[in-house]
Design a protein around this nucleic acid. Sequence first.
DNA 1: CGAAAACTTGACTGAGGTCAAGTGGTGTGG
DNA 2: CCACACCACTTGACCTCAGTCAAGTTTTCG
Lengths: 241, 241
Amino acid sequence: MLMQNNHAFENAEKTGEAINAGQSLSSLFLSSAAEPVAAGKAICWEGDQAKHLFQVEEGVVRLHRIIGEGRRVITAFHFAGDLIGASLQNDFIFTAEAVTECKIRRMSRKSFHDEVARSDALGPAYISLLCQEAAAAHEQMVLLSKKNAEERLCSFIVKLASRRNPRQGLVRIPMNRQDIADHLGLTIETVSRTITKLASRNIVIPEGRHDLRIVNLARLKQLSGDADDFSDDSCHRVNLH
Amino acid sequence: MLMQNNHAFENAEKTGEAINAGQSLSSLFLSSAAEPVAAGKAICWEGDQAKHLFQVEEGVVRLHRIIGEGRRVITAFHFAGDLIGASLQNDFIFTAEAVTECKIRRMSRKSFHDEVARSDALGPAYISLLCQEAAAAHEQMVLLSKKNAEERLCSFIVKLASRRNPRQGLVRIPMNRQDIADHLGLTIETVSRTITKLASRNIVIPEGRHDLRIVNLARLKQLSGDADDFSDDSCHRVNLH
DNA sequence: CGAAAACTTGACTGAGGTCAAGTGGTGTGG
DNA sequence: CCACACCACTTGACCTCAGTCAAGTTTTCG
């Protein structure tokens, strides 16, 4: 399927154009060294001047904001190939931290914009990337606004599963429960309970803390509440008409 | 303050650059006629091919998505001067409807992109607009993820108030309670009750359905939960119950 | 003026949050 | 290799904020 993704958590379906967009922008970062970042370490801080863009060469990164009293919102996760900071103007509006051990490349905002301005291909690629991010943000707003705990978890798992995963049916969950909770607007306990419930219905099987075996992907998609799909309950969309 | 805004619900603080960005893009639409749209009527539909961009010449527009069983999410409101559809690639991912009687200009996506490509100034303006939309989406995710009903309402009112409003202290609320509820991830009853509660504490005074007198803007900002504000409760948080 | 729509208010409910144990896997030092 | 401790996670009991349902009230409009 996809060898490289521009932005974490996009819809699985991408136009060939969009994929190329990410690849061509990523190539700008190849001239800089891949810096190792230990799990849990920050890559940039909310409020700092956004002098650089980053590219995730390897590993998983979380973007978050803290609003008083330790309320943390993880607005996105970024995976290998993704760019961080493309949609910024002046300052970082999020803190980026390594979820796992990472390799990160960086590039100054100025030279990034210079390169984009210089090339005919890069401008549209950049705009395409920003549009994809907007679509992802849109999707997340719907999730946070109207979905219940089960729908949120199922949406999340389906998205993870739609990334290229090594073994069929086994999805890697690189982040811990607290990260998932803060991304889905839930608590750690609710995440835990909901996974347990899905497991008891034999929809997924947890294999250790960081892997999930997907038993019934169709059901998972159905439960993710992205309606307009099979509105009549049972899943015989197959033999209609 | 601002004569024109590019995107609904941005932070009030904008760089001069950003304002110019919106203005220069807006000028592209001047060659097309301003079409009147009656309140409640749709301007474009989710799922349709996004062949046009729109500019709000006059009035207020809501963007929404419906996810099964009549769950509606209003992802944004757009006001005079704002562009609609800038962040789209192929299809509309929202339905746009007039909240009030509107005047709308349109422009084909193709000629919009041609014009942007042709001009040196328009490319950065376009990118700037997309970044502002990203920041707004970010903000909304935080609201939906971590704020309670009162904080949501206060955030909403503060944003409305930060737009240029004719009379000092009197904020126009063009949309109805259901629209507010669907934008803030609440129900109509909770919106109503929360406004009543703010009124009883003499923070705002409702003047009819569509106007609010702001009695205590500082308190309103404080209650909007965007922390990092005055964490030491200087503002007599103490002797209220 | 009457009817319908928009909004408010009240009583009750429930999904998910909070608080508090309990469990299990992992890493470290002996 | 085990013992211990620690941390991430799970589970249970209880609570609360906002949702639901049902009147009631006000505004709008034909």
